[in-house]
Amino acid sequence: MRLLAILILVIFIAAGVVLGALNADLVGYDLAFAQVHLPKGAALLGALVIGWLLGGLTAWLGVSMGQRRLRRRQLHADKKLSSKP
């Protein structure tokens, strides 16, 4: 299982290197406050990484907020129980 994962990772890295080399020409972005010029491959990779990170962050925030809500409810229930004679 671990070997397969390493193999797939190596294939993707190799593909990334090849695509990066084939698409080395620069593309320009106008971000309104600044203009950036990046190689096409790097722009693609950057967009993917940012998308992946944003997805992860959203899910993490969702889970942790849910857990916090649960914990608060539990604390509230505990207090109620302990206040009962």
Binding site: V27, L44, G51, W52, G55, G56, L57, W60
Partner: peptide, 24 residues
């Protein structure tokens, strides 16, 4: 380039969301 990025970025977002949920 944009026509490649438009489907790939949501896919990356979904992948990130799924892996984070799994770890959590």
């Amino acid at each position: 380039l944009m026509s490649v990025l438009v489907p790939l970025v949501p896919a990356a977002f979904a992948l990130g969301w799924w892996s984070s949920r799994r770890v959590g």
